[in-house]
Design a protein around this nucleic acid. Structure first.
Lengths: 349, 349
DNA sequence: CTGAAAGCGCTTACAG
DNA sequence: CTGAAAGCGCTTACAG
């Protein structure tokens, strides 16, 4: 019972029973014979660590199967490396392409994504933004420019930058990447007028703000040509291919002399094309069809469908790029990027 | 200079300059005149908090705009409330429907999702699993049963439960929710044989394991009927609508007498249908077409397309349900759920 | 029904 | 190039 002995059996500090069993950075540090700080550096800024130490650390990580704890990192650094992306729908391929653009831009940078779907509901959007706030995302990528006041305030209060996609804001304080929905609708009208169609109609569902802006442009174009802008059937419910067929049927019932239709998206256009085939209506001789977005089937349908080609991948990519600039503390060269659109004229008109 | 004075001007503990400026649970506690613990309880288990205290806490939260810090919560509780979902592709509507099922089952429970896309690459899948490990997800939902050894080991080592979707594992130790891909392919062959087609062919792209199992079943069915199983064109590259048209062209060039095709997915079937229309081939009189999955356009095409109807929403929903059971510590009644499939016979065959 | 103490596993801000 | 100390904002495990 010498002093030495006593020392060697000194009571272990009462182990709090909260051990998670996970391999921590401290375990790696002990194994490699360095401090936790050095392990942390080896992971984040390897150049600041002596080569030999780095090798031992790498070996220790592999041996122990160490996986960094993101939560601990986020808490300590107040940086989550998370970007919250909020889109109206995932069933809509348009937004999938946008997500691909975002991922291609940000994925390499080690960002993680929180992907939210609003179902085209502004309330749900506000709620999602609020929920995602808990994850302290570094930034938000939002769809449209119509966020509710509450959501805008919460973003501002927490100093979280947000880029809005698929539309353009008049205010240069907002960051927006998109194109003019109205001009796109207008372009379709002009094309139909130029082709000599006398009674063009409009088919729409899921009447979100961007659809309504397309309609506005389309009507403007028709009116300028002295045509009736009221040949239209619109349904607020979610859009799908089958609805293209039923909307066309309604339209023909109300306006039997309609000779061309602008469908607010390509799903409706596809359904409308099938309905024409069923009715034996020749496209475009008896009925011209134009779609919107240029999803994969438009170009390869028979007949190929005329459509507005939207830069949806670029919308995602460049919105992400703008966000990255802001996160780096740089001033983006432009806070409002108009990517424009194209009109692909094909057999259906 | 009394002792009292000295005490009252005792030096502030040196404020570490790491303040994040965020409103914390402690701020709320002070405002409400309770301890942080009580605020935490008010948020998680309101029934354990006195009604009056709860009211003051709610008021304080609103007044201060408090947002809980998820990272701190995850770190302290060792529970992330995150489920990692890994699918091959987001461009494929099949998996979007599956995600919807997952969300419908888990979303209410307050889970967040980390959604990964492998691009059909096993290596990428392993890498994603590894990356997501840092977020300490409570569970994984994976696609297919072919994970690499490294990934399986990492999941096992960290005791993270994983449910595999869209296929069935022979081992009851794996948790799988899906259906027999092989039987589905077989069912198509049987149907074509029954309809009297003499020279059915197979069109496929993106030759993932599930596609290959469909093919296997299809070939089996043809061979049993004494038909040649080698009327096929397969391309490993990603699938899309346009490819349906080009694959059909290749097939017809090699096998001009082919009178029916089984397309390994509906995109190919749609492209093939358009190609038939362009060639003036009557469907199904000169060429029958069957698809796989029953995406929205199959039923409403002209002619409507015969297809295997896959329970993809249910695959997601029930896989999520099984995972929840395991996370609750319950033993799932079945670790292998065969949801089956249907064959929707339509005009195209 | 409530609270003081300790700890989750990292990183920051220093000091060498 | 390296490390000891403190702190990020919660929750656990107790004790009352």
């Amino acid at each position: 019972m010498t002093k030495k002995n006593t020392a060697s059996i000194k009571p272990q500090p009462v182990k709090a029973s909260r051990a998670t069993g996970r391999v921590t950075i401290t375990d790696v540090a002990q194994e490699a014979g360095v401090s936790a700080m050095t392990v942390s550096r080896a992971l984040k800024t390897p150049t600041l660590v002596q080569k030999e130490a780095h090798a031992r650390i790498s070996a220790a990580i592999k041996k122990l199967g160490y996986v960094p704890n993101q939560a601990a990192s986020t808490l300590a650094s107040a940086k989550s490396n998370v970007i919250a992306v909020i889109v109206p729908s995932l069933t809509n391929m348009v937004f999938i392409d946008t997500l691909t653009g975002i991922r291609d831009c940000l994925g390499q940078a080690g960002y993680q994504f929180l992907i939210g779907e609003t179902g085209y509901s502004p309330d749900r959007e506000t709620q999602l933004i609020s929920t995602y706030m808990r994850h302290a995302p570094d930034g938000f990528l939002l769809t449209g420019v119509e966020q509710q006041e509450e959501a805008r305030l919460q973003l501002a209060a927490n100093h979280i930058p947000a880029v809005r996609m698929f539309d353009l804001s008049p205010s240069s304080r907002d960051m927006t990447v998109g194109f003019s929905q109205k001009k796109a609708g207008y372009a379709i009208a002009q094309h139909m007028v130029a082709q000599g169609y006398k009674r063009p109609g409009f088919l729409a569902a899921q009447l979100d703000p961007r659809v309504m802006k397309r309609r506005e442009g389309f009507r403007k174009g028709l009116m300028e040509a002295g045509l009736d802008p009221n040949v239209e059937v619109m349904l607020p419910s979610p859009t799908n291919v089958a609805m293209g067929a039923s909307l066309l049927s309604s339209l023909l019932q109300q306006y039997p002399d309609c000779d061309a239709i602008f469908c607010c998206n390509d799903d409706l256009a596809l359904g409308a094309l099938f309905e024409c085939q069923r009715r034996g209506l020749k496209v475009p001789q008896q009925m011209a069809i134009a779609g919107f977005n240029d999803l994969p089937w438009a170009a390869c349908a028979s007949p190929a469908i005329t459509a507005i080609v939207t830069p949806r991948y670029q919308v995602g990519y460049q919105a992400a790029q703008m966000l990255v600039q802001v996160l780096k503390g740089e001033e983006p060269a432009k806070t409002r990027i108009d990517l424009g659109f194209e009109l692909a004229v094909r057999e259906s008109t």
